[in-house]
Simulated assay, not measured.
Amino acid sequence: MGSIPLVDDIAAGWDYLGVVLKGNIKKDDIILMVSLDGTQLYASKQSDCWIYTWVVLNLAPDKRYKKIHVYLGGFIPGLNKPKNIDLFLFVGLHHLAALQHEGLRIWDSSKDCTFSLDLYLLFTTVDGPGLICWDGMVGHSSKNGCHVY
């Protein structure tokens, strides 16, 4: 017997599909996902570097996660996880907000003209430890861990 999708999952999917079906997201618009993750740079040294990347979701699944199509947003060096992740994410998200407001102008050399397209942020993804930094909640390992989310 298959699992029944949660109402929130269905609603979230229809939020996106509804906008596409209404024509608000056009064929040439870019759909993005931003992903944050921590990594240890050296096996023998204690370090904690955090990286965030942009993934273009318009590409087919077999292409979107290839190295050439995953774009570095930034990295956060240090010995410990960052205390305020917003300071590092601000530049990339501010740039995205500016492009969403102004539109992204692109030159099409085959037609000898420029056109404007829109960018949409569909997902933000992180692992468990990164989620604590991303949304500012206490996480599961605190003294009184979060039982709601």
Rank of each mutant, 00 (worst) to 15 (best):
K63N: 10
H140N: 11
N84S: 09
L6P: 01
S141V: 01
I10M: 08
T114D: 08
D37K: 07
T53R: 09
C113I: 14
V19H: 01
K81L: 04
S116G: 04
H95Y: 10
T114K: 12
L93S: 05
C49L: 08
F115K: 15
L41A: 05
L59V: 06
G2Y: 08
I68C: 07
G130R: 02
H101Q: 13
K63Q: 10
K63V: 05
Q46W: 13
G92D: 05
K143D: 07
R64T: 00
S141D: 09
V148S: 12
S141G: 03
K63G: 01
G38W: 04
V148R: 11
I85S: 02
W14T: 07
S47D: 14
N58W: 03
S44A: 03
T39G: 09
N80C: 13
P5W: 10
F115C: 08
I10R: 13
S116L: 15
C49T: 09
R64Q: 01
T124M: 04
C49Q: 06
G103P: 07
D37I: 01
G136F: 13
V91R: 07
W14L: 11
V56Q: 04
A60Y: 15
G139Q: 12
G73M: 06
Y149H: 14
H101F: 12
I76C: 06
L131N: 14
N84F: 10
W107K: 13
N80H: 13
K111M: 10
L89Q: 11
